[in-house]
Computed example of a mutant assay.
Amino acid sequence: MNPQAQLALALFAYAAQRGVAPARLEKLAGVRVAELQAPAPGPLSAKQWQDLWLNAAHLTQDPLFGLRFGEAATPAALGIVGQLIQSCPTVGAAVTQAAALLPLLTDYLRLEVQRSAQAFTLRFRLTAAGQAAPPEVFGHLIDFLLMLVVHELDGLVLARLELRAVAYPPAARWLPDHGRTLRAASAREGQPGEYVLEFGGNYWDVPILTGNYELQAALLRKVDELRAAQPAVGQLRDKVAGHLLANSYLGLPSVEKLAANFNTSARSLQRQLRAEGTSYQDVADAVRKTLALHYLQARAHPLKEVSYMLGYNEFSAFSRAFKRWTGSSPARYRTAGPA
């Protein structure tokens, strides 16, 4: 499947998580999911792409749809990230190859990578096609790409990469949610038509999560199976569980971060979950338990890494939770299997 079709399918999937009926988005955008899933899907026209972004944002009533989509995107949904996992041993190699692969996703931007001893810089530069694109459409796309870079680099190394600086063109939109997701209090004014992310040079040679792509692909397929087994999305708890499963590769977020991705407040999210007889903690624990059992049965990651992947800062906290779920310690369960 080509990367553009995968991106479009990922957009449909995320919009569905946000409560948008796929059939309605299909009709408004003139794009059929079945055609995207065909063995050799044809390219989407510029109008189809524009209508996808605009209608997804309209139906979710979210002017920052692109940013939240980038924050929620998963390697399973974007094959281009899978290519990076398969072929790149380090962060530097991954971002270098990503620059070469970006034209497969969009012709609105090109990505340039610059490196010095102190930092490496990713520069997204507008092309002529990007300059001609409707501003709202381009806004969603650049939000998506910038957030995707930060989000996926975090996941590929299981660490929180700190940005040294962010630069936006003069008069470009910068809102509190940009600061939250890009982890920058503000963006400095950069050159016209140029968006910049600058990372510390120490990250360049950091190994990505695993060189065993087949193993990682198997884990991602398992996550897809678990999501498919969830009840049809209707109640908020089902949407939250689906989101957590979809993003489990990158650890489970705090309730504040998840609420922001649903374009609501943590208090409002918790209130709606209480009305359904549950809480964020209950839903997160159920997802953690399901994933913990799978990761331990796969015997592919050290126990401390499994703990981190599930969002525990301390292994002791994971061990206590696992014993509460199963009556066994993680080490004993991995050795002996279910009691």
Rank of each mutant, 00 (worst) to 15 (best):
V150R: 02
A167D: 06
L161Q: 02
I208A: 00
A167T: 06
A187K: 11
L161F: 01
L156C: 00
D177W: 12
E198V: 15
G179N: 08
V157I: 06
L148G: 01
L161I: 02
W204N: 02
R183N: 10
R188Q: 15
G179I: 08
N202C: 03
T181W: 13
I208M: 03
Y203C: 02
V166Q: 02
I208H: 00
D205V: 09
R188D: 14
V150F: 00
L182M: 13
S186L: 12
E162T: 08
A159G: 00
P169L: 11
G190Y: 02
E194K: 07
T210A: 12
R173V: 12
I208N: 03
L182Q: 10
A172G: 09
A184V: 15
E152H: 08
Y168F: 14
R188F: 11
T181F: 15
F199Q: 01
L161A: 01
A167M: 00
A165M: 09
V166D: 01
G201V: 04
Y195N: 05
L175N: 10
A184Y: 08
A172N: 03
T210M: 07
R180T: 10
L182D: 06
P169R: 09
L175P: 04
R183T: 02
P207N: 08
P170M: 09
P192D: 13
W204M: 04
S186R: 15
Q191D: 13
E194D: 12
V196F: 03
P192C: 11
L197E: 04
N202R: 15
A171E: 14
G211E: 15
R180F: 09
G155M: 01
D177R: 14
V206Q: 06
G211T: 15
Y168R: 07
H178K: 12
R188V: 15
E152P: 05
E189L: 10
A159S: 06
H151L: 01
W174T: 06
P176C: 13
L163R: 03
T210Q: 09
R180P: 00
G211I: 13
G201H: 06
P192Q: 10
R160N: 01
A159T: 00
V196L: 05
R164H: 07
G193I: 14
L209Y: 07
E194S: 11
G193K: 13
P169W: 09
F199G: 03
D205P: 03
R183K: 11
I208L: 04
G190D: 09
A171G: 05
D177F: 09
T210K: 06
G200K: 05
L148W: 07
V206R: 05
E162P: 05
G190L: 04
N202Q: 08
Y203Q: 02
V206D: 04
E198N: 08
L156Y: 00
A167Q: 03
E162A: 13
L156G: 01
G190N: 05
V166N: 04
E162I: 06
V149F: 06
A171Q: 15
Y203V: 02
S186W: 12
G155Y: 06
